[in-house]
Design a protein around this nucleic acid. Sequence first.
DNA 1: CTGTTAGCGCATTCAT
DNA 2: ATGAATGCGCTAACAG
Lengths: 343, 343
Amino acid sequence: MTGGEKEITIYDIANKLNISAATVSRALKDHPRVSKKTKKLVIKIANEMGYRSNSFASNLRKKSSHIIGLIVPRLNSNFMADVIAGLEKVLNNNNYNLIISQSLETMQKEISNANAMLVNRVDGLLISLAYDTTNIDHLEPFIKRNIPVIFFDRVFEHDRCPQIYIDNYKAAYEITTHLIKQGCKRIVHITASQLRKIYAERYAGYKKALEDHNIQFDADLVIINDLSSEAGIASAHQILKMSPRPDGVFSANDNCAISCMQTLKKEGIKLPADMAFAGFNNDPAAIVVEPNLTTVNYKGYEMGEVAAKLMIDHLINKDEFHPAHSLILRSEMIVRESSLRKV
Amino acid sequence: MTGGEKEITIYDIANKLNISAATVSRALKDHPRVSKKTKKLVIKIANEMGYRSNSFASNLRKKSSHIIGLIVPRLNSNFMADVIAGLEKVLNNNNYNLIISQSLETMQKEISNANAMLVNRVDGLLISLAYDTTNIDHLEPFIKRNIPVIFFDRVFEHDRCPQIYIDNYKAAYEITTHLIKQGCKRIVHITASQLRKIYAERYAGYKKALEDHNIQFDADLVIINDLSSEAGIASAHQILKMSPRPDGVFSANDNCAISCMQTLKKEGIKLPADMAFAGFNNDPAAIVVEPNLTTVNYKGYEMGEVAAKLMIDHLINKDEFHPAHSLILRSEMIVRESSLRKV
DNA sequence: CTGTTAGCGCATTCAT
DNA sequence: ATGAATGCGCTAACAG
């Protein structure tokens, strides 16, 4: 291949029109000090000649890419797809583009992704941390250069980076309270590493709900794993060994809750009569499992929108972030049969 | 904000070391004709000074971005997440990066995504088409410029663009044959727009299997919709009205199969005794629904790998694509209880 | 093995 | 309202 016909530049347009490249550049950018007539003409000819702006040259000159980087643990969830749709809407409306990569839940990949974003000179970075990320040294090069970094969902405490996440504490408090109101006295909580703020907060909400309803907190009822399907099966076996047998389970995600439920069912436990269940995330499978799983829904689209808006505002106003820019979004409990006991 | 300390360039490194910028550039690129000593020194100083290469300048000079564009209908599936992981592995190993966007199943968004990719000067484009894409005029600017375009999964016939997809015909043939072997005589097929090659081929495979087993094809048993959950419910009602009642269902995706199953169960149909079910995609919910759904699994990771390899080979060898570069991948049937009848 | 030079395409200052 | 000139930072001849 030859690269096809040569790429045409503003100089080619300028020559054909006998005007200067500067005027072409301005016309294409809809600069106010160019006559309507020349603008129209330039645009017409540009289209005819098949011109496409060279973003490298433009970015080099302007020292900005108008590209926002996004790093997420995994893409395979409705939540993330929604977040991205929300982000793209706001960013595209403001002439920004998005580049996306997934860390696959490992800090190592997250680091290499961040470096790629750095070299590709994103104007801002949005990141939801990998499961095993323990520090954010890899983000320091951004912060040092005043490239805005915004955490969302899986956030990290940093006084120059806003965080956007849902009110995990409140959601967990509400759903635990709901289980208590359904008559549960011994409620298991399945959660993950407490280094992740979201899991720590769900745990805290669970504890507080017990306390407020005069139920003694029992550390033996707390299972910590990675919330995978396999972990759900293991949790079920652990629960079966508990004595007296628990009468409720609040899992920090649906995925784990579902495989746990299925395992318990196979072992003859009646759900929700013997044991009520609640999860978190509103996974599509939550309405497939029987009984349908009570869970917490949070709109990713909205989270994407607010994250993008925060980023755009910052880029346009060029001011420093305040920790106060952090946002906590509301979530909603969705009650389904898995937690409805005939009390 | 001020942009922080000034970005340092190869000239800054060159000055500090009293060598030329060209040598610095070569050293950083690990060019063979630079002494080990200078290389080491340059790299050390570069790190100390916090240098980051300027990809705009480099790309402008080299007229290539080393970025591959990816456009997919939606990101919220395991399949897509796997495809992307496979792509990233191969591309990153070859020093290429990926930029991703989702068309949200609309041709309009797909067009604007493609334009963004064009302006951002991707070196190649990988695309799985939106549901309602009827032509690929928006990809012509790439093809005209000899920017390689590779279709995967939801492909389009074009003599300069290879296609990578699974053998839908064969998979559908096999799964239909399986249903027949389980004793099904009247098998419904739920599918989507026949403009999409993948659905047309699944349909064809279904038909051929019937024919090869001497079962009269009956157009009344074919339901065409958008394969959504809602469509699954509607399909169930349609099936209930069919007389004589069908004894098997092959849905072109799991999602639709599952909601259809649940609706039928509510109406008192025994699965699989009254009606055997098979889907397509190996959705996570396929092992949650009861009975677990027989389906077709195809490894996205592998598809991502081969697509990326094809792209890389093409970019390195700079030769034209041949239609012969198209690839058809194997898939595997996963038999679960939904199709196992005690015959 | 290293240096000199030039130019990629654009946006912008300073003229007019 | 338009033009001329300059440089963003890098890489690739070419020359030693």
